[in-house]
């Protein structure tokens, strides 16, 4: 992790990137998300923490409608998510997502993984898409792996390819769903470094993660969720040093205690 927080270089604009109002979601009769209100401005780096089953992943999966919400409003980059399939595809092409298990396409090379969506969704010419892809692979520091298949890469490399694949769509917002949870300890750092670099460039990011060091270094806001509700949100310094609710204190003592 970088010694000095580079937070001063990251500017947050007044423009709203994501606006969630009074959103509720149920799995059958199970109430997973309760009355979520969340406004994310352009350039914000938000870390969502909380115990497992608290609805963190479900929340960010609602933002690109991998999960459907049943009441309330979600507006992403000025487009409201409804059952209108055109709006959904529009939002998805503007919002990148990185998964816990990478979800690279194993039958395509690394380069093809990265150029697929630009070519087929954005209609970028192949040559240009490949140039962009190579640039982003360079950025995540694995340009030499472009012609390999995902199965030939390590977990950390695969996750960096997944980040590059999302970046190739030039997204306005990036969602990270526990990006380091499936990685061996020595590979976590290489992925986090990539994410920090991305944050320094001003990308709007929402990360579900248990990496509290990352939260302290990069986030401008930490959100704590429990039982489907946003319990507490604050700047990282305040969040870690003076948590307000008992639930947050307990959680922090458990994950920072070791």
């Amino acid at each position: 992790m970088t010694e000095q927080s580079p937070r001063h270089r990251m500017t947050i604009s007044d423009e709203v990137a994501i606006d969630i109002r009074n959103m509720n979601k149920w799995y059958g009769s199970f109430h997973v998300l309760r009355d979520i209100d969340l406004t994310v401005h352009k350039g914000e780096r938000i870390v969502i923490a909380g115990p497992s089953g608290s609805g963190k992943s479900t929340l960010i999966r609602c933002i690109n409608r991998l999960e459907e919400h049943q009441s309330g409003h979600i507006v992403v980059d000025g487009v409201e998510l409804t059952s209108d399939i055109k709006n959904i595809d529009k939002v998805r092409s503007e919002v990148g997502m990185v998964f816990q298990h990478f979800n690279l396409f194993p039958h395509l090379t690394v380069l093809e993984n990265c150029t697929l969506a630009p070519i087929w969704v954005r209609n970028v010419p192949r040559r240009q898409a490949e140039a962009t892809a190579r640039r982003f692979l360079e950025k995540v520091k694995i340009p030499e792996q472009a012609d390999k298949y995902p199965g030939q890469l390590s977990g950390g490399q695969q996750q960096r390819v997944a980040i590059a694949r999302s970046l190739c769509m030039q997204p306005k917002i990036m969602l990270f769903d526990e990006p380091t949870s499936a990685l061996d300890p020595e590979m976590i750092k290489e992925v986090l470094d990539t994410m920090i670099e991305l944050a320094e460039e001003g990308m709007t990011m929402i990360c579900v993660t248990h990496e509290m060091g990352f939260a302290q270094a990069v986030a401008n806001r930490v959100i704590f969720m429990d039982q489907g509700q946003i319990v507490e949100q604050n700047a990282p310094r305040e969040f870690f040093n003076s948590p307000q609710s008992e639930r947050t204190k307990l959680f922090l003592s458990q994950i920072l205690g070791h």
Binding site: L66, D89, F99, H101, F102, N103, F105, V121, S166
Partner: peptide, 18 residues
């Protein structure tokens, strides 16, 4: 096929047929 493949395709904005 793992569900993640469908999700990754969706998340990239590919429509059903693509």
């Amino acid at each position: 096929l793992p569900k993640g493949q469908y999700e990754a395709a969706d998340a990239l904005g590919l429509d059903y047929w693509k």
